[in-house]
Amino acid sequence: MYMQRVLITGAASWTGGNLARHLETRPDLEVFAVDDQKPRVEFTSEFQRLSLDRLTLARYVLDVRPDVVFHLQSIHPKSEHGRNTEAEERIVGSLALFGAIERLDTIRRVIVKSDTAFYGASPRNPSVLKESTRPQGTPSRFQRDLTEMERFIADAAVRQPDTAFTVLRFAPIFGPRVGNPISRYLTLPSVPTLLGFDPRLQFIHESDAIAALEHAGDHPVSGTFNIAGHGQLYLSRILRLGRRIPQPLPGRLFDGALNGLQRLNISVPDHLRGLLKHGRIVDTTEMTRTLGFEPTYTCRQTVLSAYGRQPEGER
């Protein structure tokens, strides 16, 4: 039986590690994982620690000759935090990777993890963002990087009509185990919020995020898709559901409080500050209709599960 070869970049991240762990249980797949850091989640597949911003990655890809590429760490995590030299290099790494993909004729699917931060968080954005919506307002650094990366993919997809390029724009991933900036922020015992603003937020449950990536690997559909759970919640409601105490602070103090959190190793990157002011809701019609993916958790259930309450108890 032919084993499909799967390459996962950014396997050190929570999502990457769990995807590798999930895919290696399947008998029809052979998993190869790369990252430049030590994995946060343990898995047994071959892991190669190499710099993602050099040509080494491209050479490795040419060696492995994968069938499916999951490009998860397309953006350097530090890019989320506004420091940008590494981010710049990582973009170059993505460029090299897409070059390698173009040279190999074995690759049939490329799945890229993007973020709904692509749309930014502007008061001028429409209430419901579709995949085709052009974002408004001044873009953050992270947003610019995402835009640039998605442009590479669009270019590559034009040149390689036989390969399915799937871009998944994930809503913030939330759940009981994932440790990303937004989940650390929301699970603080007392959460600083911006006085006078109550953003509408949307999440994807951590297990649904892995399932969405796997689904995209199994069902090749070219295109860009928003990935989020059904429904949406106001930040104040989320904190009520989690029994957390909101601390409404006026603008300057709010910024100060978030900077203070950075000392406690809970960083709130710039693009999340915009999100905590204006919120963001994406349209998921394309996700269910064209991609055919149906998340098991609604946003509400995601929040309940992340705070350790029983979402299935709610009927």
Partner: peptide, 14 residues
């Protein structure tokens, strides 16, 4: 309202 027992619509109607 205080138990947040319900969902809002996509435009934020509570």
């Amino acid at each position: 309202l205080s138990l947040a027992t319900y969902d809002i619509d996509a435009f934020g109607l509570d």
